[in-house]
Amino acid sequence: MSDTQLSLDNPKSLSKLSDDQFQAVLLEGVSRTFALTIPQLPEKLYSAVANAYLLCRIVDTIEDEISLSPQQKKYFCSEFIQVVKTGNHAELFAVDLAPLLSEQTIPAEHTLIHVLPRVIQITHKFEPEQIEALACCVETMAEGMPIFQAQDLHGGLATLPDMDRYCYYVAGCVGEMLAKLFCHYSPEIAQHKDELLKLSVSFGQGLQMTNILKDIWDDAGRGVCWLPQDIFTETGFDLKNLTPETNNKNFRKGLEHLIGIAHGHLHNALRYTQLLPSHETGIRNFCLWALGMAVLTLKKIKQNLDFTHSDQVKITRNSVKATILATRLTGRSNAMLNLLFNLTSRELKTPDWTYSTQSSKDNIKL
C-alpha cells in the first residue's frame, strides 16, 4: 500500500505533512491527472492551483452525492461559497456534511471533506487577488451546477447553448480562474489578460466536452445525459432512446458533429497556450498535457463511435507518456506546436458542420 493511501485512510496522519505535501496527497487521491499536471507549475503557482482544484472538487462532491436532495445540495453549495470567501465556519460545515456522504462517494473524497478546514486555512494564506480568483470560481460553479442537477436529464440538454452554459459552470469558470492566477503570477502574461480570459472559457469547454463524450455511457447508467438534443434532432435521433445497445448511424453522426465542435475549442486552447511566454515551460506543460490528452481521447472516440463504455476510449499510459515527451520537445516553439496539433487532430474536423466556438462567456446566457 502506498504512502498516499495510508495517509488518506488515516486523515489524522495528514496533519504531520507540510501544506504542499498535504495537498499533493489529496490530489493523488481525487485526481491522478491533476496530480500529474499541477506539479509542473512554478512553485509560486503550485500551491494556489492545487488548492483551487481541491475547492472545486468539494463542490463536485456535493453535486455528485446521491444521498443529498436538490435542496440540500443547494444549501451546502451556498454555505460553501461563504466558507471559501470568509474562511469562517469551515469546521462546522465539514461536521454537517461528512455524515451525509454515501458509500458511492470515493474514500478520498470522504477524507477531503473531513480535512476541509485545513484546505480553507491554506486558501486564506494566499494573496487577496488569488483568494478572490478562487472564491469567484467556487461561487460561479456552486451557483450554476445545481441549476442543471435539478433538471430531468434523461433525454439530454435541450440545446447546444445549454451545453455551452453547463460547460461554463463546471469548466469554463475554472479556466478563467487559472488565467487570473497566471496573470497575477507574471506581468508578462498579464499583457494578454483580456484575450487569455476569453480563450480560457473555450479551453475549459473543450476539455469538458471531451469528458462528456467519453463518459456518455457511464452517465447513462445513472440516468443522465449531457448531450444537446437539438444536434441529434438535426441528424434524426432522439436522445430519449439512447441506451448502451444503441447502434444508430444518426446518433453516430451527431457524435461526429460534437467532436468537431470540441476540436474547435481545443484549437482555442492551443492559441491560449501559445500566448504564454515560451520560457514559462512549466505553465505551458500544464496546459499542453491536458490539451494533448484531450485530443488523443477525441481521436479514440472518433475511431470507435460504436463504443459502449468509457474504458474503450480511455487513452493508455503509453499515450500519456508520448504526450509528455512530444510537448517537452515542441513546447517552446509555437510553430512546432501548430504542426503537432494539426497532424494529431486532422481527422477530428467535421466538414459538413459549422459552429462558432466563441471564446467568450458573453455569448452564453448565464
Rank of each mutant, 00 (worst) to 15 (best):
I189H: 10
I189F: 07
H192P: 10
H192L: 10
H192Y: 09
K193M: 12
K193W: 11
K193T: 13
K193Q: 14
E195H: 12
L196A: 03
L197T: 09
L197G: 08
K198P: 06
K198V: 11
K198Y: 05
V201R: 13
S202G: 06
F203Y: 12
F203C: 07
F203A: 12
G204K: 03
G204Y: 05
G206V: 00
L207R: 02
M209P: 15
M209T: 02
M209D: 02
T210L: 10
T210M: 10
L213R: 03
K214D: 07
K214R: 12
K214H: 04
K214M: 04
D215H: 00
D215R: 00
I216R: 14
W217G: 09
D218I: 14
D218Y: 12
D219E: 01
A220Q: 15
A220D: 13
A220S: 14
A220M: 15
R222G: 11
V224F: 12
C225I: 14
W226F: 09
W226K: 10
L227S: 06
L227D: 01
P228E: 09
P228T: 08
Q229N: 06
Q229S: 07
I231K: 11
T233S: 14
E234I: 11
T235F: 00
G236I: 14
G236Q: 15
G236D: 15
F237E: 12
L239I: 03
L239S: 00
K240A: 10
P244H: 15
P244F: 11
T246I: 08
T246W: 05
N248C: 12
K249C: 08
F251G: 00
R252K: 15
K253P: 00
K253Q: 04
G254D: 11
G254A: 08
G254N: 03
L255C: 01
E256I: 01
L258F: 04
I261K: 03
I261H: 06
I261S: 11
A262N: 08
H263M: 08
G264N: 03
H265W: 08
L266F: 11
N268K: 09
L270R: 01
L270I: 04
R271M: 15
R271D: 15
Y272V: 02
Q274E: 05
L275V: 12
L275H: 09
L276W: 03
L276V: 01
S278H: 07
H279D: 13
G282F: 11
G282I: 03
G282L: 12
G282D: 01
G282C: 06
R284G: 05
R284W: 14
R284A: 02
F286V: 00
C287D: 12
A290N: 13
A290D: 04
A290F: 13
G292A: 02
A294P: 00
